[in-house]
Nucleic acid binder design. Structure first.
Ligand SMILES: [Mn+2]
Ligand SMILES: [Mn+2]
Ligand SMILES: [Zn+2]
Ligand SMILES: [Zn+2]
Lengths: 144, 144
DNA sequence: TTTAATTTTGTATTAATTTCAATTTTATTA
DNA sequence: TAATAAAATTGAAATTAATACAAAATTAAA
């Protein structure tokens, strides 16, 4: 894991989002910022248990719940059992490769929701999820 | 429930999708065609148990699984616990009202996925999910 | 320090979905 | 038609991500 943030930066990030910094919250934030792979709660737990041996999974869930309330992360509801979490809250779409399981970002125009049928709706959130095969896996397939 | 399909029509619908028609499959299909509310497996079960008292929930799941394989329905993975099922497999978006819980359709241009970043990807499926407040609930709110 | 507030933990619970073997129904063959 | 094979359905148990919640630990305030 590339270490690109100081503890002070992480603390400030949390404070700016109205979150009191605790060890666990700082570590979860650090993980999310340094691993932009749309991890599941378990991904985060499995990594952090190596750093905080007393960590409970409930704490990871609590932290992510708080992060969601404060707008630090978005949850991705893809066609899979577990939720994934995204520290990038800027409007964008997701592609899940059904071969390798990776979830990639791609840009989406906000124009999508400018349709007559949505006039009168209050839009709080938009999720664009694409399922298919990523470039890498596609090229690997051709070789065979 | 409006009854708009004859048993023969329902049987043909299944046959055209390479599905052997059984009583349960016909009933589930009929429910889906007549109740375009994006129901959950439990919605379907709760209604059909009144018509088929011996029905098991597993059969509803089995049927929906088969329907998905054969392209009769799509599953909607919204930000909620249960999956919903949609007999309308034509490309369109969904809006979930966070007040009344209803899920509405809206048209989406397929242009969305024509972005440079998706070149090289094989796209199998696109989900557009919007969360907010529907017109009805919004107007009800204003009154208060 | 003492007390109060907050955070973290661990266990139990929930609930949608899946698994799978047994049973029932339907189709095929003799 | 009866016997047999194949397919569909059932029901109970297992799975598992997420939640509830009270006790314990940590941190902040008085
Ligand atoms: Mn993302
Ligand atoms: Mn729909
Ligand atoms: Zn891939
Ligand atoms: Zn509504």
């Amino acid at each position: 894991m590339k270490m690109t943030y100081t503890i002070e930066q992480l603390k400030d990030y949390l404070k700016r989002h109205d979150i009191k910094p605790s060890t666990i919250r700082i570590k979860v934030l650090e993980y999310l910022l340094n691993n932009r792979i749309h991890p599941t709660a378990d991904d985060i737990y499995q990594y952090l248990i190596g750093e905080i041996p007393t960590l409970s999974k409930t704490s990871v869930y609590n932290t992510l719940e708080l992060f969601m309330e404060k707008g630090v992360v978005n949850a991705l509801s893809l066609k899979e059992k577990e939720l994934r979490y995204d520290i990038n809250t800027y409007f964008h779409g997701h592609l899940k490769c059904e071969i390798c399981g990776n979830v990639y970002d791609f840009p989406v125009s906000e124009e999508i929701i400018n349709v007559e049928e949505l006039k009168g709706f209050v839009i709080r959130n938009v999720d664009i999820n694409v399922y298919g095969i990523c470039k890498k896996c596609n090229e690997k397939n051709k070789e065979v």
